[in-house]
Write a protein that binds this DNA or RNA. Structure first.
Lengths: 250, 250
DNA sequence: CAGTGGTCTAGACCACCAA
DNA sequence: TGGTGGTCTAGACCACTGC
């Protein structure tokens, strides 16, 4: 008889609370009992309950507000489609694994544009910049229902975009890809690379997420018809807010 | 004069250690000083150092072994290409954001096949199964250099694959997609959906990851030429082990 | 058997929020 | 002003590793 190694208390408590939330005993927006109260209920020390809540918070299931309490996150992830393409009729509808909000337009703030900036080394390399060559950097933040969900920073070769609307805060209809097309460098191919890591202090602050919630780094590289890299968009996503979606033919 | 709210000690210590690792002061495989030693160095309590190490462990930067120490993870993520397509010459080479191992073949174990299984409700819905209709379930685990990196479970309609090699552990050259083609249901289109969440206890155990390391859920849905869903592959990835890569035309 | 990390306890002080 | 979560301390016991 092989007895399983006991799963630690704090993990069992996390599983308990997660199950309660999944069963709907706590609805989105509801406040969980206080830590001391939970500690008494489960018969453990407050710190043990804190560890359990830490797992749920890192996961994005709950959101704890200092001085107020721990609240169940309303979980409606955003579906981000990486490949936009007309769908044949009858395909795709209702056949996704996770329900998620689709095609809603987020609010944008913290827009800033800087010209003649030396980008990070790994960006400069992929952009194919020569030594001393600079870039135009466009930053912004996206929010959904008042909740920040993504930071994005675009890097473009300075020599390519100097004097164009791309160096302005407002780039006009179609955005910077339309303006790149105006300049004869329409993006025709993209690469998106995705990794998971901890947020920096600044990222956590701007996204209003706890320090132990991982973010998804999503870096989109845009190529023009000659195969030149014309833009790199470095995105930082709240990992609890998104479902990424890619569709493609065999 | 707005003074920034002080970043907590444990986060500053985590940043310190992360920077030391990035600078190469600790090489992959190296053992970090013990918790008590670090606590003395930083002038804080052992638990505070533990919190800092917890962040690095959740991130996958370090790996702590009970009774032995905390070791820097050798960081060589695996590049998983979601879209296989011939690249035009000169594209893509050396232009990726993150360096990663490419096209290495992982080891596979924990292979199991079960027929006539009732799949989870959300799988049954996407598979388009009628009530009581069952599926064939194929599970396996992938490892790289002895380190488990991914769990995968495929669900196929039982009526579609009954009696075919798909119900065997060994499916033959080309795998189950080739066998589906033999059956007249070649997959011609795919959807991949990606989410981040905490591992279950079983997932953490099979992947040998700590309970606070997020996993990436990657669910691939395969459609045949008639638009029927012929397979769902539910994958669980160690988020610290992978770079996901998608390339596509505008 | 000495040292390590994993878990857990008891309790302190603080900033913040709501009544 | 009382309760909340956030941080931090001091210390206990255990399982495991490696000498």
């Amino acid at each position: 008889m092989s007895h399983e190694p006991a799963r630690p208390k704090y993990q069992r408590i996390a599983d308990d609370l997660r199950a309660s939330i999944d069963r709907g005993e706590y609805q989105p927006g509801d406040r969980l009992p206080g830590e001391n109260s939970l500690a008494a209920d489960f018969g453990v020390a407050p710190l043990t309950v804190r560890q359990a809540l830490g797992l749920l918070r890192a996961e994005g299931l709950v959101d704890s507000r200092k001085g107020s309490g721990v609240f169940v996150q309303s979980f409606r992830p955003i579906r981000r489609r990486g490949i936009h393409r007309l769908r044949r009729d009858g395909w795709g509808s209702g056949q996704t694994i996770w329900s998620a909000d689709d095609d809603r337009s987020p609010d944008v703030d913290q827009i800033n544009v800087h010209e003649d900036v030396a980008p990070p080394e790994h960006i400069a390399r992929v952009l194919g910049l020569a030594d001393e060559e600079t870039s135009c950097v466009r930053g912004r933040r996206y929010s959904m229902d008042g909740r920040p969900v993504m930071l994005a920073t675009s890097y473009l070769p300075q020599t390519l975009v100097a004097g164009s609307p791309i160096t302005q805060a407002e780039t006009g209809p179609g955005g910077i890809y339309a303006r790149l097309a105006d300049l004869g460098h329409e993006p025709v191919r993209f690469r998106e690379e995705i990794r998971s890591r901890m947020p920096t202090g600044e990222e956590a602050a701007r996204l209003s997420i706890p320090a132990d919630r991982t973010v998804l780094k999503l870096v989109r590289t845009a190529f023009d018809a000659e195969g030149r890299v014309v833009e790199i968009n470095d995105m930082t996503l709240d990992s609890a807010a998104y479902v990424l979606d890619y569709e493609f033919d065999a």
